[in-house]
Design a protein around this nucleic acid. Structure first.
Lengths: 352, 352
DNA sequence: CTGAAAGCGCTAACAA
DNA sequence: TTGTTAGCGCTTTCAG
């Protein structure tokens, strides 16, 4: 109906729109005016292009490029009632958090996986009670379409809060005591793999540094260890670490060594625990892997830089992230989604 | 004008609003109806409470609590044209990125600092050309009020793209060749501190493992080293690492040792480089710090877990984050803001 | 396939 | 101090 180029202002809107477009950020009306179609057609063209003639579609695309139009997400979200944004919620003391090198990798991978679906990730920390309240308010306030929950400890208040909420949510790692769909690596089988490997390697006195028993990782990795060693996994051979860090690994290794002077193998529930164990062993004058073989878990960046490099169990973190996003997006589309457990892989280096 | 309790529907809106409130997410009109005031009054009460009588204010607050109202940010943003959201943009190959333990700390600290101002952080990765385009489109599309730029390498296309853009932006670390306000630790002075310490400690043959020379950290830390050693810092005593990682540190240390068998001190431009240097030195049979004293930079978590623990230079990352946010928020308010350089601190452990 | 028009929930300008 | 009203930019019926 109207001229396609802006030089021939046919109906009044065209002129107004064009002039305004010079100063303000262009709107859909500006596109419509330039493309010579109605606002509705532009909208349809922008959202899938259904019920739009090829010529209109082309005109719109051209106009969009010409005037550099980008949709105003707020206006769109106001009417569609969805934001194309998900919250990545960390519910733990932040100091601990980024000591775990897994977290950064996961965060990055989720961001990228979401970007592939045109979703953005907003990072929220819920370490204190007030922060948790703010997060919950924010999430429930409809600012995000769903939640990616990174909660390590059991009894996390934010988990139960989200459990019965109407906000789609998926947890990374099996949540304790809560029925929320999750995606996790197969911790238990991974622990079995490494423990079996130690045994086949000839270790006869294998101990374990177990992670905190209020985390799924801590519990399942110990369970896997016991699956393999059965009755032999006597109390004496298990040392419990209060967290997954280096210092805890040093302490637990000291304890294990005192109780079992003839130990010749150790499975630590994380690479950092293993790195601490290595430090203690060196101080005790034990050679690794000759005197004592050591295995870790996670295959984080630290595994490659210890001396000797760690034999460990790789978690498929990229895959975890991908599936986390897949499940959440499904949930957002109101599809029924179930939890997924991903296989781990033994990575043999030099410590065992 | 109207009854305060919902049982006495006086004007039509009240009834409709109340009924709708039962099913839908409550709106400002629902609050108005319940509080017995107009929508405008509610809005004013919600935004600062100016020009609102104490009694109205109380009524509104009560109504908000009663019906569990939360503002619809999209509607608000649509009219105010600001989102209370900033983008945290990473412009580098992500694999490298979270090897740097600083990054996680910074990200967390920024998130918290922003939360204190009721801003949210959205994470964006601009590693590839297409990702960069998407990021730029997103940022310019008005989805965020400003940008926190974490760019390490010089010549980053996203920097120049943002330099003359009208989007408020602040960089973490001094950007190379670009005039964008930034917040950074005083790398040069930090390097001087450590180098002086090595000299005062009695080292007479001090080498350095320099970081990549297309990063401000790499350049400035080397400059600081030279400031102290002056002419003595001959070429022979400098080894260049292609990145800040452990493996690069091992290689550079090997090189340094070959060229200078009598070396008795090393300043590495990062903790991870230093950790690599430690590994090489151990393999070479040199004792640290007795034969060779080693210093790192950053005071990341690795510094505490090496053997021996690293003497290093602490960057005040929490403070950096805080000021980063302060500057960005100022910029968003259209206040003129200038760059800030923060002092570093020498942390003495056992490696030197 | 297309255009017109009705809101989405909110803020801000204006009149009272 | 308050209520009324006009949009913000967009999607989505609903007629045509």
């Amino acid at each position: 109906m109207n001229a396609v180029n802006g030089h021939t202002p046919a109906h009044p809107k065209s002129r107004g729109a064009a002039r305004r477009a010079a100063r303000r950020r262009p709107t859909i009306d500006d596109v419509a005016a330039v493309a010579g179609v109605s606002r509705g057609t532009v909208s349809r063209a922008l959202n899938g292009g259904r019920y739009v003639s090829p010529s209109s579609l082309a005109a719109v695309e051209r106009a969009v490029r010409d005037i550099g139009y980008t949709v105003n997400v707020n206006a769109r979200s106001l009417v569609t009632n969805q934001s194309n944004t998900v919250a990545f919620v960390l519910s733990e003391a932040p100091e601990h958090l980024f000591n775990d090198p897994n977290l950064g990798v996961l965060l990055l991978a989720c961001t990228k996986a979401l970007a592939d679906h045109d979703f953005s990730l907003i990072l929220m920390i819920a370490e204190s009670a007030t922060a948790r309240d703010r997060t919950l308010r924010y999430v429930r306030g409809g600012h995000v379409d769903g939640v990616l929950l990174i909660s390590t400890h059991g009894g996390d208040p934010i988990l139960s809060a989200l459990e019965h909420g109407n906000v789609p949510a998926v947890a990374c790692g099996r949540p304790l005591d809560v029925a929320i769909p999750y995606v996790a690596a197969d911790d238990r089988e991974g622990a079995r793999q490494l423990t079996r490997y130690l045994r086949e390697r000839g270790c006869s006195q294998i101990g374990t540094i177990a992670g905190p028993q209020d985390t799924a990782g801590g519990i399942d990795r110990l369970a896997g260890f016991r699956d393999v060693l059965g009755r032999k996994a006597v109390k004496r051979l298990v040392a419990y670490a209060p967290d997954f860090g280096h210092a805890a690994g040093e302490a637990a290794m000291t304890e294990l060594l005192e109780r079992n002077p003839h130990l010749d193998g150790v499975f630590a529930a994380s690479d950092q625990l293993a790195s601490g164990a290595l430090a203690t062993l060196r101080r005790a004058g034990r050679r690794v892997p000759d005197d004592v073989a050591v295995g870790g878990f996670d295959d984080t960046s630290v595994a490659a830089t210890t001396d000797p490099p760690l034999t460990t169990v790789r978690q498929p973190l990229d895959q975890v992230a991908k599936e986390l996003v897949e499940v959440l997006l499904g949930l957002i589309r109101r599809q029924p989604m179930s939890s997924r457990v991903l296989p781990t892989e033994l990575v043999v280096r030099h410590s065992a």
